[in-house]
Amino acid sequence: MEKDERKAERSRFPKLPEFPRRQDEPLPPGERADIRNEKSFLRLTGILCLLCAVCGLLLGLANLLTEDRIAENQGSRNMGVLEEVLPYGGNYQEIRYSGGDPTIEAVYEAPEAGWVFQVSPAGSFSGRLTLMVGVDVDGVVNGVAVTDSGETEDLGLRASEPEFRNQFTGKTAAVQLEADGGDIAAISGATITSQAVCAAVNSALAAAAELG
């Protein structure tokens, strides 16, 4: 009963034309006309799987061989920056930061000398700005370095030049730009970046006060 009804329903629609097969072009040897043909389908999938497996193996092998060296490069680059902002002679220990400041990403402790804070301040001008701020045990800023930024060259990127960075050395209390009533000269044309750097230094000082 139900079947008949369905049949009647179907017959009300006109039959779709068959998809035209191209008869003029001969198929490549070994190929079947229809992808739904099981044998051809399995063959295609099989070959592609094999190819992907080989390529994946190649990539995995390359990763295995280069992994240590890449980590080493990253480590030595970080170590160089750590030495720059708080000279200690190696042996920095990464410690867990449990304070409430979300912009502080990592803390490296140099026992009895101070801390280096990796800070990504909110409100950088373009993309992520990451700085290393070295603070000694007395809560004095020792050095600031930009490690990663999407800032514009010649404008925001000038934050990584010594003339700007060195202004922070020796600061103990919260820093502000001259325009905001402080004593840090902003980079002309890059006030927002300058503000972000100030915010990062302030975060680091606050965190150092918590730790020390």
Partner: peptide, 24 residues
């Protein structure tokens, strides 16, 4: 390689080699 998967294979092979070069 069957002709149907020529393009996919080209992308897979080239991208893998590119990935290896990136790591190196």
């Amino acid at each position: 390689l069957p002709e149907r998967i020529h393009m996919v294979s080209a992308v897979v092979v080239t991208a893998s080699l590119g990935g290896v070069a990136d790591l190196i």
